[in-house]
């Protein structure tokens, strides 16, 4: 049996405030002529710089909703959440977008690369929303990042000419190019074969560790989940810890 997640570490052990803190977070969707649908219920979670978490769960258990909330794409309908110490409820949509761009990197199951653009252009795209040095040096930064994920020789290739593993590497480079503090990976190996998936996950793990960012991975794959240091499971919207079964 599972127990509710209790991973909130005592403050004394972590003098720095958590990057993301969720307290009794709820996400409810109103459906006409039906009872409100409770997607997330009472979720408590703290994520700190350098953490590596995995969240497993069946389809429809609320994994993606939780990820969207962590990445400021969605907002809780109940409970409290802070990002970088700032209550999310007090953040305007614009502030959330700017914070997301500067501090969060997304990696999607279907890669979500922009069609028609080269690998380099794809990785440069998030830097179009940056300011100062990051914007003006976007080509150099993107080139370096693609080199880091082993695609330094494929800069001008368009995604459709690359393998699934290579496309996901581009997506990883794109997620990391603005040096985010939080990387959110939604089924990052879901569209890859086992071998390629393992190599991609190793790369993601290595790059995240080197950058010091927190990595949250949502997956069905226990092998992928096993790479994390903290493991969670979502069951009918309730987050429980310590489980590696989907």
């Amino acid at each position: 049996m599972t127990a509710p997640a209790t991973s909130r570490t005592p403050a004394a052990q972590h003098p720095e405030p958590p990057l993301v803190a969720l307290e009794r977070v709820e996400r409810t969707v109103l459906i006409p002529d039906h009872e409100p649908l409770r997607i997330l219920q009472g979720v408590d979670l703290e994520i700190r710089i350098g953490d590596h978490l995995s969240i497993v769960g069946r389809s429809g258990s609320g994994k993606s909703t939780l990820l969207n909330i962590l990445g400021l794409l969605d907002v809780p309908t109940g409970g409290a959440m802070s990002f970088g110490g700032v209550p999310v409820r007090s953040m305007s949509e614009k502030r959330r977008a700017v914070t997301r761009g500067a501090r969060v990197g997304f990696i999607f199951q279907q890669f979500n690369l922009l069609p028609g653009r080269t690998a380099l252009e794809n990785v440069m795209t998030p830097l179009l929303y940056a300011r100062g040095k990051q914007f003006w040096q976007r080509e150099r930064l993107a080139t370096e990042m693609l080199g880091l994920v082993g695609l330094g020789d494929r800069l001008r290739e368009k995604p459709h000419k690359l393998s699934g593993g290579e496309q996901q590497r581009i997506a990883i480079a794109r997620a990391l190019v603005r040096s985010p503090q939080l990387i959110l990976a939604d089924e990052p190996t879901g569209a890859l074969d086992i071998e390629t998936g393992q190599s991609v996950m190793k790369l993601l793990d290595d790059v995240a560790r080197e950058s010091g960012a927190a990595l949250v991975t949502i997956t069905h794959d226990p092998n992928v989940a096993a790479l994390a240091h903290r493991h969670y499971s979502l069951q009918n919207g309730v987050l429980v810890d310590g489980e590696l079964t989907a």
Partner: peptide, 16 residues
């Protein structure tokens, strides 16, 4: 539409 969504995930504001 999808491209717009992806850009929003990179931090593109509604105004942008």
């Amino acid at each position: 539409v999808r491209e717009v969504g992806i850009r929003r995930s990179f931090g593109a504001t509604g105004g942008r």
